[in-house]
């Protein structure tokens, strides 16, 4: 079992690199969908003995939501808003990949220093769970910060949430309802995706470039009193 889990974790790490290095939004959504299915499998692998109905329901629900519903919503959003790729990210793609390498090293170091207490070690002898989940969280946070398009930021949020789910589903499985709370984070993803469509419907923006959402700031005195304090 441990080998299988580690294989899943390696695939997870690879999907993160793919997300960090890709500019095509459709491709990114597909990768995130694959990641969602990948982590949905986890509860089947980490549980001991026969699979409980509750665990199975959680796993299938996760896969359906992250693997199909959200990608479908996001595809609809990019179709409605007519964006294909992230043109000018705040941080370039090769720099993003370099960040990925650094973050992976950081995650391995952190996981090496955080020793799980005996009660939480459970049956999983898999050694890559913690580093992979920390790396996924960092990659998601990085995507939120480094990309301009609102849809990529939502994608980053989804990836970060996947990382938290991996940690929960493999390490705090004694309290399954606690892991299920993570579903509530998905509410945000749904709200964000709908929000992007609302932006577009309102036509108050020419594009869904989140960097255009930059009217509110301090210190804009140079253009006279009338333009200040907006």
């Amino acid at each position: 079992m441990a080998n299988l889990i580690d294989t899943v974790m390696i695939l997870l790490i690879l999907t993160n690199f793919a997300l960090l290095g890709s500019s095509l939004l459709g491709m990114c959504i597909n990768i995130a969908a694959f990641q969602g299915i990948l982590i949905g499998v986890l509860p089947f692998l980490t549980g001991s003995g026969p699979v409980l109905a509750e665990t199975a329901a959680m796993a299938i629900g996760t896969m359906a939501l992250k693997g199909f519903v959200f990608p479908w919503l996001m595809f609809r959003a990019i179709r409605d808003t007519n964006v294909k790729r992230e043109m000018e990210p705040f941080v370039g793609y090769s720099t993003s990949l370099m960040f990925g390498v650094a973050a992976l090293v950081g995650s391995l170091w952190l996981a090496g220093h955080l020793v799980l207490p005996a009660g939480a070690r459970g049956l999983t002898g898999a050694s890559l769970i913690m580093p992979a989940s920390f790396f996924t969280i960092m990659a998601g946070l990085f995507l939120i910060i480094a990309r301009k398009k609102a849809i990529t930021q939502v994608l980053g949020y989804l990836v970060m949430e996947n990382g938290i789910y991996v940690f929960g589903a493999s390490i705090v499985m004694e309290r399954p309802w606690l892991v299920e709370l993570g579903v509530l984070l998905d509410v945000f993803v749904a709200v964000f995706t709908m929000g992007i469509v609302i932006f577009y419907i309102n036509r108050e923006f020419d594009s869904i470039d989140a960097s255009r959402l930059a009217h509110l700031r301090d210190w804009r005195r140079t253009r006279g009193a009338s333009s200040t304090g907006v």
Partner: peptide, 14 residues
């Protein structure tokens, strides 16, 4: 939420 998970790990021994 990750913090709550960490707390659950801290509490997992007993």
């Amino acid at each position: 939420l990750l913090g709550v998970f960490f707390l659950a790990v801290a509490a997992s021994n007993q």
